[in-house]
Simulated scan of single mutants.
Amino acid sequence: MTAGSGAAAAFAAAEEQLRAVSFRGDLVVHEIPSPQGVAPFSLALAGDVRPTPEGDSPYGTGRFILLHDPTEPEPWGGAWRIVAFAQAPLEPEIGTDPLLAEVTWSWLVDALDSRAAAYHSASGTATKILSKGFGSLADEGDGAQIELRASWTPEGPFDAHLDAWAELVCMLAGLPPGSEGIAVLGERRNNPHG
């Protein structure tokens, strides 16, 4: 077996593991095209919390990408890397909370730790976005949003990392663990469909 075929076999096993993960009913996950040129092997997934029939989610969305590069890029500190994104709209007053970014990052760390999803070389940003509509968008009022972009080098089973990401996306959307099927408090999202 050549090094290339060994890497391909390792990645195929990782893909199989990730594709076997089942998610809570509030989160719809599907495969999307992987980014090109980042790594020789990649698998990308998108998740939407309680999407509308059109496929949009007024609650939150996310992306999970597993990358594999047998040359072990120095910043990764290994042959595998996970890149994750999660985003959710917020009440404007929550968006002004000075600790929101720290709390968002801690939710990711807690989700990984609760699943014993070992990792190293983590990095990322948590971004708060506040908006106010003007002109024809004035009726939309004030808005806020939180975005988390993170990457880390996983150790151990990849499905635990995917589970942790799924929990994070739901947490940002206002749906903590065990809340499947429960209404989001005040249905606080600007939902043009309902």
Score class of each variant (00 low, 15 high):
P98Q: 00
D69M: 08
G25P: 06
A39W: 03
M171V: 08
P98M: 01
L67M: 02
M171S: 03
T125Q: 12
G186L: 14
A144H: 04
S131E: 15
L67G: 08
S114P: 07
G181V: 08
R189C: 07
P33G: 13
S5Q: 13
G25I: 07
L45T: 05
G141S: 09
A150K: 01
S123W: 11
A7N: 04
Y119F: 15
G47C: 06
V109G: 04
R81E: 06
L148I: 14
L112V: 04
A86H: 04
N190R: 15
G62W: 04
L175T: 05
A86K: 01
F85Y: 14
A14Q: 09
E187V: 11
T2D: 14
L162Y: 01
A160F: 03
C170D: 06
A117F: 08
D139M: 06
L148K: 00
A20K: 11
S151N: 15
I94Y: 06
D113V: 13
P40I: 10
N190H: 13
A84I: 10
I129P: 08
Y59W: 14
F41D: 00
A44I: 10
G4M: 14
P35K: 03
D26T: 04
V83L: 01
S5D: 13
A166Q: 00
L100P: 04
A14C: 00
F11E: 00
A166E: 01
P157Y: 02
G77S: 11
A12R: 12
H68S: 10
P73L: 13
I182W: 08
W107G: 02
L185A: 15
G55K: 03
G62A: 08
P40F: 05
V103A: 12
A166S: 15
S22F: 03
V83I: 04
L172C: 03
F41G: 06
S5H: 05
D163H: 12
N191L: 02
E167L: 04
H30Q: 13
G60W: 01
D69C: 13
W107H: 05
V169S: 02
W152E: 05
L27Q: 11
R149A: 12
A14E: 00
F41S: 06
P89E: 03
T153L: 03
L67N: 10
Y59E: 07
A88G: 11
T52L: 08
V29F: 07
A88C: 09
V103D: 12
E187C: 10
T127P: 11
I65N: 08
W80Q: 02
E140F: 03
M1Q: 05
W105F: 13
G47L: 05
